[in-house]
Amino acid sequence: MSEGHGETINVTLKVWRQDGPDATGRFEVHHQAISTDASFLEMLDVLNEQLNEAGLEPVAFESDCREGICGTCGVMINGRAHGPQRATATCQLHMREFRDGDEIVIEPFRAAGFPVVRDLAVDRSPLDRIIEAGGFISVNTGAAAEANLTPVPKEAADQAFDAAACIGCGACVAACPNSAAQLFTSAKVGHLGLLPQGQAERWSRTESMVEAMEEFFGSCTNHGECSEACPKEISLDFIALMNRDYMKAKIRNRSLAGQH
């Protein structure tokens, strides 16, 4: 059994500091001893405790659930969104993934659509704008039919779930060389578009969400970095599905327009 306390390792942290959205940023170097049982963010907690002790302002970084589900956390670790471990949000990364003597470069998510707020914290509100554009099924409270009236084939339900697992952390955008948000958007389009309940608005939803996305983010050129960085391993297939639906929506809407 692997029970037992972790060992202590010494790492060199190069941490991005930036006082505000318009300020110039810089790297700050700290040497940190830490147990391999600590999570990555607990390591930053320890650093902040020491900074505060020394009269220096703590590093601003965001996190909340620390269980990999709320999507609040996320930094670039040695150039990778959420760091080296596959399918793992920053908050679930543990120091046992690092070795004694490692240098760890910690930066905020880098994307034009995600301006830096302070230090490692960024503004990801454009993701909310995409959802606002159509990431919902229009059913008022009280208007729902009996839930078992519409059977959903297990396969469709499972696929929709794979897409719905997205936590909205924005790692896909940060990992993309073009800062594109296709994976995020397609996860929502796929989740709702695969379910019978989502069919009524399938085409209008796809169209308006894609177009809202394009207001804030770059274009997808099929690098696939997004899916690699995704803590929930959302598949690139959803981007293909969204592209297909977007094309269909455009053709369909044009032909509908012609009828009027």
Partner: peptide
Amino acid sequence: DQATAQGVPFARDYGGLL
């Protein structure tokens, strides 16, 4: 009922029911 209509992907059996 409400959550299902919103697209909440509850677990289903092979018949497609909840």
